[in-house]
Each structure stands twice: as structure tokens, then as C-alpha cells.
Simulated assay, not measured.
Amino acid sequence: MDGAALHAMFDLAAWLSAGAAGWWLTRIAGVSFPKQSTEWPYVAALVFGAGVGAYLFGTLNLWLSGMSGLARSVEGALTGGIVAVELYKWRHGIALRTGARFALPLAVGVAVGRIGCYAAGLDDFTYGTPTALPWGHDFGDGISRHPVQLYESLAMAAFAVVYVAAVLRRSEPVIANGFYLALLVYGLQRFVWEFLKPYGPVVGPLTLFHLLSLAIAAYAAAMLATAPQPKALHERAAA
């Protein structure tokens, strides 16, 4: 099976595993999340923003790195989805925080999907810079490189384990703010791994994805800093 087919297979596996993770939390583990927005315009804004962001930032990074063509980016999809949803909520006067139930699906989806990026090899342009470390991987060009895809996969899998443990203990702050915790971890770990990728710099040594990582982490930190306290959550639910 070639790299593109493997990548497509893992993309499907990522979506299925993300869906299964969300289903397990609510249906099997019995976790009750804060009220979410399920209106079709909201969902449409999320999907549209994620799609535009995925191709816009993925392709832009490709061009900034001196390459042509189209590309997709998980981080671009996250950024586009966040911007679209926040704009939709602002436009319709929605103050409700709507991401709580997406924390585990996000972490699991990234953890599984990045394995597909690793399996796709050089064509995927997600490989790392050369390294002499014993776990370096030759993607087919005779150069041992950082398997940064697996670094990211392991980081998000570790978050998923810690998150599930906290949620099963019914930690209200984690249940209510898990999505922003996931975004914070994602942004910070992604920022670190970007130093091990051969992408074209934009500001000093920082690449486009460095900047997106910082933006995502800053957004998550701001949302966590302004999160309602558990008592306020109970009062809002009772009202």
C-alpha cells in the first residue's frame, strides 16, 4: 500500500476514533457535559471554517517553504474552525462555551491521524529535520530524520490518558474546560516540534505553524483564565 493510501486510511481511522471517543464518554462513561450548540448554522460554520483553514494554511506553509501545490493542515483546520465558530457566536450573541465535548475526540483524532502522516513518508511534508538520535527514521531518502509526527501523536495520546482519568473522577473544571486544555497542550507541544521541521521561516526562526501554535495556545489560555467557576456553572445549569 502506498503512502497516500495509508494516509487516507488513517484519516478515516482518526475520524472514526474521534467519534468513538466522544460516544464512549457520553454513552458508556456517562459524562454529562455543559449544554452545547447543535444548530445547523453553527455546525456549518465549524465545518466551513475548518475546511478553509486546513487548505489555506497548509498551502501557504507549502509556498513559504518554496514548494508548489495544495496541502492540508490539522492546525490550519483547528484555527479556521475556532475563528469561524467564534465569529458565528459573536454575530448571534451566543455567550455559551460550546467546545467541552470535543476535548477527547480532538486528542484522539490527532494521535491517530499523525500516524498516517508518518506512514505517508516524504510526500506528506510532515517529516522532521535530520537527526543522529537512535530513533531517527529514514523516510526513503537515506536521511535519518526526527519522526515528529509520532512525537505529536504521543503527546496528544498522553493528554488523552490524563484527561480521561480526570473526567472519570468527575472533575468539573476539566469536564467544563477540557477543550481549552486540549488546545493549550496541542498548541504548546506543536510549537516545540515545529523547531524540528524543515519549514520556511516567517518571523526570525519562527514558521507559520509556530505562529498558529502560539495563537491557539494564547486563545486557550485566555478562555481558561476567564472560565466560569464550578459554582457559577451549577447556577447556570439550574437556571
Rank of each mutant, 00 (worst) to 15 (best):
G3V: 12
A4Q: 11
H7N: 12
F10G: 00
D11Q: 08
W15L: 13
S17C: 00
A18G: 15
G19A: 00
A20Q: 06
A20D: 05
G22H: 01
G22R: 00
G22A: 01
T26E: 12
R27S: 09
P34K: 00
P34N: 06
K35I: 14
W40D: 07
P41K: 00
Y42F: 13
A44R: 03
F48M: 15
G51P: 11
G53Q: 06
A54P: 08
A54F: 04
F57H: 08
T59D: 01
L64G: 14
G66K: 13
G66N: 10
M67D: 09
G69Y: 09
L70R: 05
A71R: 13
R72C: 12
V74L: 11
A77Q: 08
L78R: 02
G80A: 00
G81W: 07
I82P: 06
V83D: 02
V83A: 05
V85W: 03
K89Y: 08
W90V: 02
H92P: 06
G93L: 07
A95H: 11
R97T: 04
A100T: 03
A103G: 14
A103W: 10
P105A: 00
V108I: 15
A111P: 10
V112N: 04
G113T: 09
C117Q: 09
C117S: 11
Y118A: 10
A120C: 13
L122P: 14
L122S: 12
D123P: 12
F125C: 14
T126V: 09
T129D: 03
T129K: 11
T129I: 09
L133E: 11
G136R: 00
H137E: 03
S144A: 11
H146V: 02
P147Q: 00
Y151G: 11
Y151E: 05
S153F: 03
L154M: 14
A160M: 01
V161K: 01
Y163W: 13
R170A: 12
E172D: 14
N177Q: 14
F179H: 09
A182R: 07
L183G: 08
G187P: 06
L188V: 14
F191S: 05
F195G: 15
K197A: 10
Y199R: 08
G200Q: 06
G200F: 11
G200Y: 11
V203H: 01
L206W: 15
H210T: 10
H210F: 06
S213A: 13
L214W: 06
A217Y: 08
A221M: 07
L224A: 10
A225I: 07
A225T: 05
A225H: 01
K231A: 14
L233M: 11
L233F: 13
H234N: 05
E235L: 05
R236M: 10
A238G: 13
A239I: 13
